[in-house]
Every structure is written in structure tokens, then in C-alpha cells.
């Protein structure tokens, strides 16, 4: 590993100030950043470890909203009685990310800030219309994700929490790549106060909402409403794990399975 400076601030303002330094990166669970550094694909001059910041791991409920601190680990979300009771689809999603080691280190804030095109959390955040809270503002999920590994975050901006409005019902279905265990396609469906929202991960170009599915499910929230819909393969990536047409097909299958689960 290439040498770097390490900071562990105990105040948010201090962390933000440190991130203004050249080649400085925030460190949450480190499940992407640390392997990247170890493989010499990134060589930051300094890391700012966020784990010393207060209040960042809370999981709490208030006024129809569940709030997760940005450093809530996947295993904690999966195991939270509160999340299991109020947002079971999110608890199950968190419990299905990666492997046990990743789930005990990785955080929701880190996953969202990284915005891997095959990550699970972005699908839930986008479909549920969550709000991403940072050190300086609140960002609606629809404005947060900007394609491959890109978000609305500024270089020194820190996610502090994510607020999930509670849906009427919701569920997530995915087919994992047998090798990486990332979703080949994951579809999160939610019946929310703002209508049906469907978000898809794994298509290749970053998490996105699927208007075709949303319109169909708005008319009839039933698996049959989407199982016959065929999305154009043009919107999907092809790689050695899945051709675009297969991913497009899986989108319908996973959407239908998610709807069935939401209704179960």
C-alpha cells in the first residue's frame, strides 16, 4: 500500500475542513476504497476516517420517516428491529449485500457516495424517494445519483444521514452475478405517497428509475403488470456476465418478483 496521511476527526466541521486538502478522501467502511488503494489503483495523499464523528450510526424513526445515520453498517440495518418492522424491504436488502465481512464493515453512506452501478442501496434510496442529508444540505434521491460512480456530492461534502419516508409497501428482488455476487439486475418497487416508484440497479449505467414499470404498476400493482413488459436492450450494458438483452429480460422478471413479494 502506498503511504498516506490518516486523520480521525471528532467533529463534522473538522472533517469537512480536512477534506479540502489535496488528494484527500473520506473513509467510511472502506469496502471499496481500501481494496482500490491496496491494488495501487488509487493513491490518496490523506484519508479522513469518519468513524469518530458523533451520531453517525443512529437508526431511528420519527413522523413517518426512518432515518439511518450515514455510518450505519449493513449488518446493523439488516438486524435492526426498527427497520425490520417499518421498512422490511430495506432490512432484507441490507442483509443481502456482498458477504458477511462486507456487511459488518460497509456503510450506507459509503455505498451511496460511491454509487457503484451494481450496488444495492441506491435502488432502495431512489425507489423510496429518500433524502440524503449532508453536512450542508438535503438532497432528494432523484437529484443525488448522476450515473457511474457520480453523485451530487461536492468533493468535501459528507453524507451524514439518509431519511426514508415509509412506503405503503415495497420489496426488492435481484439476481446476483455468481462470481461477484453483485446484482446482475436488482429492482426495488415501492408504493409511496407520491405514487409507484421503481428503481433498477445493475443495468450498467448507474441506478435509474424505470418509467415503463412505474406506469404499468400505477395502473395495476400486480406482478402480471410488469412480467410481460420488455424493456429495450439498448439501455443495458453487455459484459461477460450478461448480455444486454438478458439484463433487459431480467428487469421484468425481477420487477414482477419484487411486486409479488411486496404483496405477500
Amino acid at each position: 500500500m502506498i503511504a498516506f496521511d490518516y486523520h480521525k476527526p471528532s467533529r463534522l466541521a473538522e472533517a469537512v475542513a480536512l477534506l479540502a486538502g489535496a488528494e484527500t478522501r473520506p473513509l467510511a467502511g472502506g469496502m471499496t476504497l481500501l481494496p482500490t488503494i491496496k491494488n495501487r489503483l488509487a493513491s490518496p495523499a490523506a484519508l479522513v476516517d469518519l468513524s469518530g464523528l458523533p451520531g453517525m450510526t443512529v437508526i431511528q424513526e420519527g413522523a413517518g420517516v426512518v432515518t439511518l445515520g450515514a455510518l450505519a453498517r449493513h449488518a446493523d440495518v439488516a438486524g435492526s428491529a426498527l427497520v425490520q418492522a417499518r421498512l422490511p424491504a430495506l432490512a432484507r436488502l441490507a442483509g443481502s449485500i456482498g458477504d458477511p465481512a462486507v456487511r459488518h464493515r460497509g456503510t450506507i453512506g459509503g455505498s451511496l457516495a460511491n454509487n457503484d452501478p451494481a450496488a444495492d442501496y441506491p435502488a432502495a434510496v431512489l425507489a423510496l424517494g429518500a433524502v440524503i442529508v449532508t453536512d450542508r444540505r438535503e438532497i432528494a434521491a432523484d437529484d443525488f445519483f448522476r450515473g457511474l460512480f457520480e453523485t451530487a456530492l461536492g468533493p468535501d461534502e459528507i453524507v451524514t444521514a439518509v431519511r426514508f419516508p415509509l412506503p405503503r409497501r415495497a420489496a426488492y428482488a435481484k439476481l446476483r452475478s455468481p462470481a461477484s455476487r453483485y446484482p446482475l439486475i436488482g429492482v426495488f418497487v415501492a408504493e409511496t405517497a407520491a405514487g409507484v416508484r421503481v428503481a433498477m440497479t445493475g443495468a450498467g449505467h448507474g441506478v435509474l428509475r424505470v418509467a415503463e414499470f412505474e406506469q404499468a404498476l400505477a395502473k395495476s400493482f400486480a406482478p402480471e403488470a410488469v412480467s410481460g413488459l420488455r424493456l429495450s436492450a439498448a439501455g443495458f450494458a453487455s459484459d461477460i456476465h450478461a448480455e444486454a438483452a438478458y439484463r433487459a429480460h431480467l428487469a421484468s422478471v425481477m420487477a414482477a418478483r419484487a411486486v409479488a413479494e411486496a404483496l405477500a
Binding site: 452475478s177 455468481p178 462470481a179 461477460i240 456476465h241
Partner: peptide
């Protein structure tokens, strides 16, 4: 069911060059 070493026919790069891309059988399957 899962293993395949895949080379890019144009560049000769090993595309399945990590355990993220080369699928080994696992206990759970």
C-alpha cells in the same frame, strides 16, 4: 456451471482476471 477464462479476442486481455469475474464454485451453491 460457472468457470470460464475469457480473453478479449481483439486485445488478448484476460477479461475474467479476478474472482469478481471468474466464478469459482462455492459451498452455498
Amino acid at each position: 456451471l460457472c468457470e470460464a477464462a475469457v480473453y478479449d479476442v481483439e486485445t488478448g486481455q484476460l477479461v475474467s482476471g479476478s474472482l469478481m469475474d471468474y466464478c469459482m464454485p462455492r459451498a452455498d451453491t
